[in-house]
Design a protein around this nucleic acid. Structure first.
Length: 704
DNA sequence: GCAAGGTC
């Protein structure tokens, strides 16, 4: 085979699209790694288009000893089970297959094109591959720059190749370094302090994104706990106009003094009202903008109460089945190159969407209502037009994406708001009506439209309304809302921390660490442990829980990218500041650990009831963690007061759920082993006559 | 058993 140019893309899907944009490509599987490679002729040259699968190289701690800090001596190494996806050894094996394929292809290549996503992380991904898998080829490579992977743009990118920006790569690599140095060292300091100040090890962590996110929740929780409810009074009135009800509220929505409210109540009770003013205003509501990752996550939470992480996982599945476009995007734009007509024709073939899709198609000119946010590598999320076969939540998320896409092409809706002032003995009450005059895009987005309508009878100035009743209600000012997973994610977006692909993961990590917990129906609250971590960080390493760290880091990285700053100086400056914090942890570790440890202990001793006690009949069986051995077991709430000795061992690992009560009267628990692993159901009663696998419970458990 | 960032 003659020589060729090796094109390195960020992910397999991008390689496929880039290859097919250049010409008719033939796909083969590399013998070196078993991953896809595309051969294509373009402008008289042979190209082999291959891809990574995100980052194949990450920073690693050379010493590999997790109990030692500070760790400042880092190296770039292939993802392996030790540095990267510990929870997922498959990830490391997968990375190895891509690296093997690329290094094999690099040997036969005479030139290289860096065609990863054109952003900071993409620059790093390509840089590592060209340097480490291809043998120092970054400086000799050429950069393809594109904002979306359409045929035209890919060709344009290949026609305007230029030297890659090593400044951008340096900025990206420095970002990795800073996050590792701050995150890993402070996490180790936390965990080591905990170990020194209390019994046992606990996996604690903190980082540039985790820190402020946890602080958002903790600070909100404090606001809630410190909130002092102030009373106020609300007056409403119900009138009647020829048998039709008119509901109105007093012009002042809140009255702070009871005496004032009473005075109005007395003055108005039993007196008819006169319409003193009627005004109607039309409003034009523009169609919604197409979904980016966060918009979709928020909308799926609002409508279906899906967590952001779960929504993204479902969207990912839909993407892998070619039903929707790439779901990790910041973009609220739909470039014409995605071919609106093609997508709509596809949807027209699906019975659910055929009517609205055909109507849109028949108009000819299609212009989506784009939002302001853009993404260097992907358009907004849209359906591909491939007919879906889905059910359950997958269908719901797909339907939401499909209807949102349709709605963005709809006409603006027109609504009318009518305000009516009603005079009662010189006091003014207000009634409000809202009506949709033209539904436009709303028809395309049903049932997901969020708009309240309220109707009023025809009213004119001078009309007299019979007063049915005036009601005075005492209310209290409310504390702010707790964050939901969706609003916490929105807060992260607003503060520009984390990325569209990682925000949901960060929230999941905080749950896993037991820093935050869901308080039934009222949202997320910080746990005692979460509070303790924020508090101790504010004292010893305040930047890690503030968004300022991200801001100042961005500034430094910008300096590197512009050539105004050197990476070593930036890193050294960060290290100097961090070392002071770490020294404090080293000196006061035991004290810090005791503070955090006592917070963690309140938690592990928290009462978790799993059922009624079958022995004493009036106590409750609870999961208890022994203070001395730290082992968990089942005990009766009457142990201390009533001397009930009912107890049972528990498996020490795995999440426990109560499924039902066994015929013997004790609870049957369901234990999860590992992530997404099998669940194991068993009665906790050691003497259970109905149980077959007593031996296996004994093996997996320990007596308190 | 540590971060944040890619992607599956």
């Amino acid at each position: 085979m003659s020589s060729y140019t090796l094109v390195v893309c960020e992910k397999p899907d991008a390689a496929r699209r880039i290859a097919s944009a250049l010409g008719s490509a033939s796909e083969s599987r590399s013998t070196a790694g078993g991953v896809s490679v595309f051969d294509v002729m373009y402008a008289g040259r042979n190209y082999k288009v291959c891809s990574a699968s995100g980052h194949l190289y990450v920073l690693a701690d050379k010493t590999k000893n997790r109990s030692v800090y500070p760790v400042l001596d880092l190296e770039w190494a292939p993802i392996d089970s030790g540095n990267g996806n510990k929870k997922n050894a498959k990830g490391a094996a997968r990375a190895a297959r891509f690296i093997n394929t690329i290094s094999f292809l690099a040997r036969g290549a005479d030139s290289f094109i860096h065609a990863c996503d054109y952003d900071q992380e993409g620059e790093v991904i390509g840089h590592s591959i060209l340097e480490y898998a291809c043998g120092g080829k970054y400086d000799k490579s050429l950069r393809a720059k594109f904002s979306t992977l359409t045929d035209d743009e890919v060709k344009e990118a290949f026609a305007t190749l230029a030297k890659p920006s090593s400044r951008l790569a340096q900025a990206g690599r420095s970002r990795h370094m800073l996050d590792f140095i701050y995150g890993v060292n402070l996490s180790r300091a936390l965990a080591q302090s905990f170990k020194a100040g209390s019994s046992g090890y606990r996996n604690l962590s903190i980082g540039r994104v985790q820190g402020p996110t946890l602080a958002f929740v903790a600070d909100r929780e404090l606001e809630i706990r410190l909130h002092v409810p102030d009373p106020y009074w609300v007056l409403t009135a119900d009138f009647d106009k020829d048998g039709q009800a008119v509901h109105a509220r007093y012009e002042k929505p809140r009255i702070e003094k009871l005496a004032q409210a009473r005075a109005v109540l007395d003055a108005c009770t039993g007196r008819d009202g006169t319409v003193s003013k009627v005004s109607a205003k039309k409003a034009v509501l523009r169609p919604p903008t197409p979904f980016n990752t966060g918009d979709l996550q928020r909308e799926a939470y609002r409508l279906f109460r899906l967590s952001p992480g779960y929504t993204l996982a479902i969207a990912e599945k839909l993407y892998l089945r070619a039903l929707v476009s790439y779901p990790r995007t910041s973009s609220q734009k739909l470039p014409p190159s995605i071919n609106y007509a093609k997508v709509l024709s596809g949807l027209a073939g699906v019975s659910l969407y055929s009517q609205p899709a055909s109507t849109l198609l028949s108009r000819g000119r299609l212009v989506p209502n784009e939002g302001l946010m853009a993404d260097p590598a992907h358009p907004a999320i849209y359906p591909t037009g491939v007919a879906p076969r889905l059910s359950g939540l997958e269908f719901k998320v797909y339907d939401l994406i499909a209807k949102r896409f349709l709605a963005t092409f709809g006409d603006p809706a027109v609504t009318e708001r009518t305000d009516v002032s009603i005079n009662v003995n010189n006091h003014v009450f207000l009634a409000e009506g809202r009506a949709v005059l033209y539904d436009g895009w709303m028809a395309l987005y049903r049932p997901y439209v969020n708009l309240e309508q309220s109707t009023l009878p025809q009213l004119h100035e001078g009309d007299v309304l019979a007063n049915r009743q005036v009601v005075m209600e005492e209310k209290f000012t409310q504390p702010p809302w707790r964050y939901s997973q969706a609003s916490l994610l929105a807060k992260m977006e607003e503060e520009k921390i984390g990325t569209k692909a990682t925000r949901a993961d960060t929230i999941a990590t905080l749950f896993k660490r037991n820093y935050i917990a869901t308080k039934k129906a009222s949202g997320i609250e910080a746990t005692d442990l979460g509070f303790a971590v924020v508090e101790s960080m504010r004292e010893h390493a305040p930047t890690i829980v503030s968004t300022e760290l991200t801001r100042s880091m961005e500034e430094q990285l910008e300096g590197i990218e512009q050539g105004m700053k050197e990476p070593v100086d930036v890193i050294e400056y960060a290290v100097e500041r961090l070392v002071e914090s770490l020294a404090t942890f080293r000196e006061q570790g035991a004290t810090i650990g005791r503070q955090i440890g006592s917070a963690a202990a309140t938690q592990s001793n928290a009462v978790i009831v799993i059922g009624g006690c079958p022995v004493c009949k009036n106590g409750q069986l609870r999961i208890i963690r022994s203070r001395t051995t730290e082992k968990r077991f089942v005990g009766c709430s009457n142990y201390a007061s009533g001397g009930c000795r009912a107890s049972a061992p528990l498996p020490q690992k795995g999440g426990i759920r109560v499924s039902k009560t066994c015929q013997c009267g004790w609870p049957i628990i369901s234990v999860a082993f590992g992530r997404g692993g099998k669940r194991w159901n068993t009665c906790v009663n050691m003497q259970c006559p109905y149980k077959r696998d007593r031996a296996s419970l004994a093996r997996r458990s320990a007596q308190p």
